[in-house]
Simulated assay, not measured.
Amino acid sequence: MRLVALIAVIVFVVDQFTKWWVVHVMDLARVGAIDVLPPYLNFRMAWNTGINFGLFSGTADWTRWVLISVALGIVLFVLVWMRRDPPGRTGLVFAGLLIGGALGNVVDRLLYGAVADFLNMSCCGIDNPYAFNVADISVFIGAIGLALFSGSKNAS
């Protein structure tokens, strides 16, 4: 469980630092867009009140609290799962990624009322209209990793 906690803390700190830097230091909340390595990497400020790709977004305050509750419920579920049936070192890393990312987005909802998304990547003639953040990447990789490797106790 120490490995889960370590990975979760690292992801959480990196996520919150990058959001703080981009929103407050680079002032992306005001500027709106900064081209970094167009079209491959751009910063595009997006306040996501929903889940991935803006699904279930709404302006009602109760939706924020429902999404916070769901995220905390998932974190609790994964923690209990890891404690009762640890899937091996690889599975613990993926659990830490998911938990750290989920908690990073929960903090955003508490501080800002929405998740601060800013990374935008396009390639090969495809113009991606969506933005995401470090927490989103971690949740995605963690969930996929747990789905693929949770049955492998010998994965080290």
Rank of each mutant, 00 (worst) to 15 (best):
N120V: 01
G88S: 15
F77I: 05
V106N: 07
W20M: 10
V93T: 02
W47A: 00
V11Q: 14
Q16A: 11
W81P: 02
Y130N: 08
V11A: 15
W47V: 00
Q16C: 12
F94E: 06
P86L: 06
G125N: 01
G113I: 09
Y130H: 10
P38H: 10
G96Q: 08
F53W: 15
F12M: 05
V66C: 13
T59I: 08
A71E: 11
L28K: 04
R109G: 04
G73Q: 09
Y112H: 14
L41P: 01
N42C: 00
F56D: 03
D61E: 10
L103V: 12
L41F: 02
I10D: 09
L110P: 06
G96L: 09
N128E: 08
L92Y: 11
G113V: 11
N48D: 14
R83C: 05
P129V: 03
V23D: 05
F56E: 01
L6H: 02
V80F: 15
V115G: 10
I126F: 15
A71Y: 11
V75G: 05
L79Q: 08
D61M: 12
L111W: 12
L28I: 00
Q16D: 14
A5H: 09
R89G: 09
I51H: 06
G100N: 04
G91H: 04
D61C: 08
R64V: 03
S57R: 03
K19S: 10
V78F: 14
W62T: 01
G50T: 01
L55S: 04
D27F: 03
R109E: 02
V66Y: 13
G50N: 00
G113W: 12
P129I: 03
F12N: 07
G125Y: 00
N42E: 01
A102M: 05
H24A: 07
K19Q: 07
D108A: 11
F53Q: 11
G88I: 15
I126W: 15
L67P: 05
R64G: 02
Y130Q: 06
A33L: 06
V75F: 06
C123M: 15
I34R: 05
A5F: 09
L97Q: 03
L119C: 11
G73W: 07
I99L: 12
L97V: 06
A116T: 00
L92E: 08
R64T: 07
N52G: 13
A46Y: 12
A8G: 13
N120S: 11
A5M: 10
D27R: 14
F12Y: 10
A116C: 13
M121Q: 13
V107M: 13
P39C: 06
L72D: 10
G100C: 08
V106E: 09
Q16Y: 14
I34Y: 02
V66A: 15
G91P: 08
F17A: 12
A29Q: 07
I51K: 05
A95W: 02
L98N: 02
F53G: 13
F94W: 11
G54M: 05
N120D: 02
G54Q: 06
V23K: 11
D127V: 01
A71M: 14
R109H: 04
L37S: 02
I10F: 13
L37I: 07
V107P: 08
L72G: 14
L79C: 07
W47H: 00
W62D: 05
T59A: 13
G125R: 03
N105L: 04
G91M: 09
G50D: 00
D15Y: 09
N105G: 01
G113R: 10
V14I: 13
D85R: 10
D85F: 09
C124D: 12
T18V: 10
L110D: 09
I68K: 13
W21H: 05
T59G: 15
